[in-house]
């Protein structure tokens, strides 16, 4: 299990590849992942950059708690969460979640649960910068 909060751009597919290469060959029959990236639009406005603020001590602790809970609720062999903070540009990754298990259902369901929990409870906040200024994102979309 691993959680990382990064203040610079990261390559999610590279992280998945390198993380999974450390695992015992033949152990996992399933891997599920979610990658969230920054769009260049929101609510019909063009977004140039976004700043992700967080509550550092609580964020790290909360993500670790989520991983532990996922491993309790599903038979996961491993789990990875990576989240950006700081200034983010369109096309850059914001979040990566990876789940590995013997069979597909555990990996898929745990991955889905983790991203929903993270989006509704992990203490991160987005502020968008667009042509008319900047604005805080007031809420996440409802699981769309």
């Amino acid at each position: 299990m691993a959680t990382h909060i990064l203040d610079e751009d990261f390559q999610p597919y590279q992280w998945l590849s390198e993380f999974s290469q450390q695992m015992p060959a033949g152990r996992d029959g399933a891997a599920a992942s979610f990658i969230g990236t920054m769009r260049d639009y929101n609510d019909d406005a063009t977004v140039r950059t976004m700043t992700l603020e967080h509550y550092p001590a609580m964020t790290q602790r909360y993500l670790e708690q989520l991983e532990k809970q996922a491993k309790t609720d599903w038979p996961l062999n491993d789990c990875l969460i990576v989240h950006r903070v700081g200034e983010v540009f369109p096309g850059e990754a914001i979040v990566l979640i990876g789940c590995w298990s013997a069979h597909r259902r555990a990996a898929l369901d745990a991955c889905n649960w983790l991203i929903e929990e993270l989006k509704y409870k992990a203490p991160f906040w987005k502020k968008e910068q667009n042509q008319s200024g900047e604005r805080w994102v007031e809420s996440n979309t409802d699981g769309l």
Binding site: L52, A57, I94, K121, K126, W136
Partner: peptide, 29 residues
């Protein structure tokens, strides 16, 4: 609201040395 890094509510008790944080709905991910 969070008390000592765990979610709490306005009726939660606080003690000497606690850290209390207030914030709006979260929007990460």
């Amino acid at each position: 609201v969070a008390v000592n890094l765990d979610y709490a509510n306005m009726q939660s008790q606080v003690n000497d040395g606690d850290e209390v944080a207030f914030f709006p709905p979260v929007t990460g991910g």
